[in-house]
Computed example of a mutant assay.
Amino acid sequence: MYSRKCGRLFYGFCTEIKTLRAINAKGATAPEIARRVLSSWTVCKHQRHQLLQRQPPDNRLHAGSVRQASHTTLDPEEARKFQSLADKWWDLQGAFAALHSMNDLRVPFIRDNLLSVHGSGVPGRPLAGLRILDVGCGGGLLTEPLGRLGAEVLGIDPVEDSIRTAELHTSHDPELRGRVHYRACTLEELAQSEGEDGDGGGGSVTEGFDAVVASEVVEHLADLDIFAACCHQVLKPGGSLFITTINKTNLSYALGIVAAEQLLRIVPSGTHDWEKFISPVDLERLLESSGFQVESIRGMMFNPLSGFWSWTQSTPMNYALHATKRSEEPGRNRAESQEMEQETLTRAAAV
């Protein structure tokens, strides 16, 4: 895989840095160290460029490109990755420690934006009366906190073992019973089930959701067009879509894959594929063309030393996005919009 090849190159560069530290301890001059650093980095970039050129034209990476459609959101390889981690979701020091810490940012981000639209609910339960869909919920790391804020939350994930882990963990909290539900399915399967009574699954999709959350999910999906169309279908008019994901930059490759996966081991090696990262510009363009209005985008940064996340003024690494479903798409009536959504979903179901 391309990302793994580049990973080895960057790893070699990082190894070179360790060597330079040893050289510096022996009294090397600053110009000598600078020349060696520049030489190593230049070689690394040249080799990365050569790898790009070896890719077939249709598979080469372009910073502004969006991955090609595959008519389903499910990537079997991604599902296998998370299948092997299904019993580790609630290990606070394990593979998903950074996601636990991310709740300090993403939960208030979702809560505050929903309150600005719907106002405050019951004291102590500000999201009471709202229905939220958590796409790619995993073990329920975000589903549960949203339920504790009073919302009725349905978490979905294609990995059944992750859903079982989520159900088991939620069952230990009486406050969440009847408020948090889970279903082992893909987003398109849920959208196709519109009209079902939803027994044991958190209610009928026909009612529509007030919000859809996809946190650290889109970088693992096979088809973002299907994802956007399904989100649009299951949301109520004016409903909110919340996404957190990773920008597609050189920095996100160096820190998100090389450093986080290969050097610091913050997340398991192979968790991310840089080819699937998407920039805020491309994601906004995709959502706008799918009937959404992007309301805000905020940069996020993880500190591996402290283990905490913080908001940033720019988006070179992670970012959070809030969009709302437009009541009517420009130049398209409701019937035409529904027809296009159904056509997209039919293609997904046919695969």
Rank of each mutant, 00 (worst) to 15 (best):
A86N: 03
L92W: 08
D87N: 12
E77T: 13
R106S: 12
M102R: 14
Q93I: 05
M102N: 06
K81D: 08
D91A: 05
S101V: 03
K88E: 14
A79D: 00
S101L: 04
L74A: 12
A98P: 00
F82V: 03
D87S: 15
F82P: 01
M102H: 07
Q93M: 09
L85E: 11
K81R: 15
D87T: 13
S101T: 06
R80Y: 10
K81V: 15
Q83I: 05
F82K: 02
M102P: 01
A97H: 08
F82T: 01
F96T: 01
M102I: 02
M102A: 13
S84W: 07
E78Y: 00
K88G: 09
P76Y: 09
F96N: 00
A98L: 05
L74G: 03
D75M: 09
R106I: 15
N103V: 00
D75R: 13
D91S: 05
L105M: 14
S101F: 07
Q93E: 15
R106L: 13
D104S: 14
L92N: 10
W90C: 06
F82H: 04
Q83M: 12
L99W: 10
K88C: 13
E78M: 06
A86H: 05
A97F: 04
A97W: 02
S101Y: 06
S84C: 11
A97N: 04
A98M: 02
D104F: 10
E78F: 00
L105N: 05
W89M: 05
L105I: 13
A86G: 02
W90S: 06
P76D: 09
F96L: 03
L99P: 03
L92I: 11
L105H: 09
H100P: 02
Q93Y: 14
N103G: 05
E78I: 04
E78V: 10
Q93G: 11
R106C: 12
N103S: 07
L85V: 11
L74I: 15
A97L: 01
W89S: 03
A97I: 01
G94Y: 10
E78C: 05
H100D: 04
A98Y: 00
A79N: 02
A86K: 02
A86Y: 02
D91I: 01
W89I: 05
D104T: 13
W89P: 00
S101W: 06
A98T: 05
G94Q: 08
A79K: 03
A95D: 08
W90P: 03
A98W: 00
D87P: 03
P76M: 09
E77V: 13
S84Y: 09
M102L: 15
F82D: 01
L74E: 09
K81M: 11
A79P: 00
H100M: 05
S84F: 08
E77Q: 12
D87G: 07
R106D: 12
G94E: 07
Q93N: 14
R80T: 12
Q93S: 14
D91G: 00
A95N: 06
A79V: 08
A95Q: 05
A97R: 11
L99F: 12
D75Q: 12
L74C: 13
A86W: 02
W90K: 05
